[in-house]
Design a protein around this nucleic acid. Structure first.
Lengths: 342, 342
DNA sequence: TGTTAGCACTCAACGCATCTGAGTGCTAAC
DNA sequence: GTTAGCACTCAGATGCGTTGAGTGCTAACA
């Protein structure tokens, strides 16, 4: 059996309706819709076919039909018609995005809150991986006896820090000159070159080998690691509770637990860096806790080589349409705002 | 009517029971408890008195009694017997606290997760206000045309940054020397002295007045403002859903909304800096959304003058006892770990 | 005089039967 | 190929009696 135009039409109508109402859709409902000129009986026949083809599920005999994940996949790939955001709304979002700023993290936070407000789902934004950025400045600041804080500033205006131990007998001035040396050697280099510079420095170092060694290993670790908890920012945590599919407290708790483990989230959201828009529906996101959620992600650019990810997590029956528009817009807006800082 | 020993005993028994079960307590239940040698009838009389005195409420005629906020207040002030944490448990918490570290923020995050795990409620930790810390280092790093990132490192190893505009004609070297100057003038000064130093610098500055002006105003703003969103860290968001009082989705959503607005949270948790342990029960915390929550806070020290706050938010029938023990312990532990960095 | 047994009373919660209506599948007519 | 008609299904709402934990009151007891 093949999908003809009428089947597409009906499937689309069902999905559109279910996305809005979350209640199983009956043949009468579809029949009444403008644009569909068939009687309930005809629709029923088609629905029966669609169910056999795996696009619809029926919770129980006397209920309407519910789109399957396969149906959503078809929907986002072919059926969905895209809508544009009103310029008014774009305006508002852009404004809100700039409202706090002054800090990269602040901008990202604003973005998360704009995203979640605009979509009514949960927003997650992952900062670009340090390893893909370039170092701008390294500074060792003595904070206590034999302890210093290492601050790394990257090209995107992202700042990372770590506490390191300092060997005896090094005073503030020593740390300053080491900082200057590190900055000179490492500035504007991509990760590969940084590693090379490390090796060279260690070879040539007559004194302070130990400190240099530790410093470099911390930097390397920062650059290579996926990132830390502050790189993942979540907005609209509570939004999911709006939806009937999460009125089950247990489900809600599972969901919140995922939102708290930033590492999982980073893997989930941050993984597809390159693509424009990525949509994962239900089980496609490989995570049993989120098997009835969909995740839509886009990316934003920071500088030339590096990008972060912004994403929306919502029920599989989410308003893909709108979510995609919002994500596309915010991806661009965020890129613009952040490259101002670069 | 006065509270005699027996009334205290019974009230305590009722509260203890209700804290554990969350179901209204009947006279039989109390009568059966070891330590209370009276028949249900006697208990009933006493309960009736306690209700008249405002310590107990009755959801409906044929239900047991529930402690009122007044009762909880009496409980935490006089009735509650404190328990000690097992050394085993202390050990485990301390270990977990050190597990990530390397960064002040990382330690605080760990602390939040330890707190929420240990209590099964929601934990909030507020970093010390910048204004109470001392500046260790100021650095202006050029990140783009006419734009620089200002990084401020404080004595506690806390790092803040902000984007600032740079007037035309200043190159990296200029920014470096200005950084050095700022660091020299501002290092180790408390807020008052910093302000004075500002004034003096501005008076003497022949060139770069504009940049200096902006820089200083940003620093001042950072020092005086309550802080930004990253200063408030929440753990165990989902824990509250464990409790029957939050099985109402609406309540849960309200609660989550409060946890998302970091400003409100900071006001709520960070307000009583000085006191050892502060307990606010229900309406005492002046926030309608949290009128059936209790908030218990303690503080941790960073350096000599400065302290942050750590707190637990839970239902009014929370296990005050345990929460207090855990907060006291973690307050000390956090102070210890963070002063290592100082 | 304080304590307790006894008893009638209350009322949320539970189980159970019934009703309702949205929805289906099938058949026969158009 | 489409549709009207009809019997059938079944979750969810509604109504109702039962249950049992809990109370308050009274009278007897130590």
């Amino acid at each position: 059996m093949q999908l003809d135009d009428r089947k597409y039409l009906i499937l689309q109508a069902i999905i559109d309706d279910y996305i809005m109402t979350a209640i199983p859709v009956g043949s009468r409902t579809i029949s009444r819709k403008s644009g569909v000129g068939f009687s309930p009986a005809t629709i029923r026949n088609e629905m029966s076919d669609l169910e056999e083809l795996g696009y619809l599920d029926q919770p129980h005999t006397s209920a309407g039909r519910v789109p399957s994940n396969k149906a959503y996949r078809l929907y986002v790939d072919h059926l969905m018609k895209t809508v544009k955001l009103s310029s008014d709304e774009r305006e508002r979002m852009h404004e809100h995005l700039l409202s706090k700023s002054k800090q990269v993290e602040g901008v990202i936070r604003s973005a998360a809150s704009v995203l979640s407000d605009a979509t009514k789902y949960t927003a997650v934004i992952v900062a670009p991986k340090l390893g893909t950025l370039r170092i701008k400045h390294v500074q060792l600041v003595p904070v206590a006896e034999r302890t210093a804080l290492m601050v790394i500033v990257t090209s995107a205006g992202i700042v990372k820090d770590a506490i390191i131990r300092v060997p005896n007998g090094l005073d503030a001035d020593d740390l300053y000159s080491i900082s200057r040396m590190l900055t000179q050697k490492l500035a504007d280099k991509p990760l590969e070159a940084v590693r090379q510079a490390f090796a060279e420095m260690l070879r040539n170092a007559e004194q302070n080998r130990k400190l240099l060694g530790e410093t470099l290993s911390v930097i390397e670790q920062k650059l290579e690691s996926g990132g830390d908890a502050s790189d993942v920012i979540v907005g609209g945590t509570g939004n999911l509770l709006e939806y009937p599919e999460y009125s089950d407290v247990n489900k809600a708790r599972n969901f919140l637990a995922v939102l708290e483990s930033k590492d999982k989230l980073r893997n989930l959201i941050g993984r597809d860096g390159g693509m424009e828009i990525s949509i994962r529906i239900g089980p496609e996101n490989q995570m049993p806790e989120l098997s009835d959620c969909s995740i839509v992600t886009a990316s934003y650019r920071v500088g030339d080589h590096s990008n972060g990810t912004l994403g929306i997590i919502g029920p599989t029956r989410m308003n893909y349409n709108r979510v995609i528009s919002v994500l596309e817009f915010m991806g661009r807006a965020l890129s613009d705002v952040l490259s101002e800082y670069r």
